[in-house]
Design a protein around this nucleic acid. Structure first.
Lengths: 132, 132
DNA sequence: TGTAGTGTATCACTATACTAGTACACTTCG
DNA sequence: CGAAGTGTACTAGTATAGTGATACACTACA
C-alpha cells in the first residue's frame, strides 16, 4: 500500500487517505489481515503530521474497515472482504442507473440533489415500517 | 412561499432556504415568474441577517433558478418549469435504482460513496469522448 | 528485560464557512 | 420628483474543520 496525495485538490488530506484505503480494499489490492503502512511512515513519506494519518485510520476503524492494535499496527478487518464484493455489485447497479439518468442532461449537483432526496425518502419510509 | 427553518439541525440556514425554494419549484408550489418573498421580509420573519438570505438567493440565481431584479424583487426564472419536470423524472429513476440497491444492505454513507465513485467515473468517460 | 517500533492523547495554530452589522443604489409609483 | 421598498456591497466577528507539535503508553522481539 502506497499513498498518492494531491495537496492542491482542496480535498482534505485525511479524506484522501481514507478514500485510497477503501479503494484498495474494494479492488483487492488490500486483503483481510494485511497491515497498513505505519502512521509515522505515512507521515514522513508524505511530509505531513502524524495526527492527520491518525484521523484517517481512526475513521476507517470507526467504519469497521480497519483494526488498530496499540503497539503493533493497523490492519484490514476480517469482514472487509465481503464488504468489497458487495460494494462492487452496488457499483455496477449504480452505473446502470446513471446511464439511464444521463439522457436527462442534469448537472452533477442536480444529480446529487436527486440522490440525496431519494435517500431521505427511503430513510423516512424505513422509519415508518415499525411504527403502525 | 413561506419558509420553515430548523436552526438546530446543523444545516446552514442559507442551504435550508435554497433547498426549500428548489423543492417548491419542483412540486409546483412556485411557478415561473412568481415573486419570492423579499430579502428583508424573510430576514425579519425568521430573525436572521439579510445577508444570509442574500446568499441563498444569489446561489439560486447562479444555478439559473431565480432572477434577482435590483430594486424590484426576486423571481422564479422562466426556464424553471422545464427543469422541474426533468427533476421529477430523474427522481423516479433514482428511486427505482435505490430500490434495487436496498437489498445489499449498505449504509447511507456507503451508498454516497458508490454514487460519487460512479459520478467521477462517468465524468472521466465524458472527458475522453472529445480527445482521441 | 530493555529497546525499537507501534498507536494514543493533549494542546495549539490557521484557514475557511457561516452569520451578522451597516451603509449604498436602483425601481416603482403616487 | 421623492419616498418607500427593493436588491447590493463592504466589513467584521465567531465557530468549526483541518492540520501541526510534542509527549505518552503499549507490544513485540532480540
Amino acid at each position: 500500500m502506497i499513498f498518492r496525495l494531491n495537496p492542491s485538490s482542496g480535498i482534505p488530506l485525511y479524506l484522501q487517505l481514507i478514500e485510497q484505503v477503501k479503494h484498495a480494499v474494494e479492488t483487492g489490492a488490500l486483503h483481510e489481515g494485511d497491515q497498513l503502512p505505519t502512521i509515522r511512515k505515512v507521515a514522513v513519506d508524505l511530509v505531513m503530521n502524524p495526527n492527520t494519518v491518525v484521523r484517517a485510520y481512526r475513521e476507517l476503524e470507526h467504519e469497521g474497515i480497519v483494526e488498530l492494535k496499540h503497539g503493533s499496527g493497523a490492519f484490514i478487518r476480517e469482514s472487509a472482504g465481503g464488504r468489497a464484493r458487495v460494494m462492487r455489485k452496488a457499483q455496477a447497479l449504480m452505473q446502470s442507473a446513471l446511464e439511464r439518468l444521463a439522457p436527462l442532461g442534469l448537472t452533477e449537483d442536480e444529480l446529487r440533489r436527486v440522490f440525496e432526496n431519494e435517500l431521505a425518502q427511503s430513510r423516512a419510509a424505513r422509519q415508518l415500517e415499525g411504527k403502525p
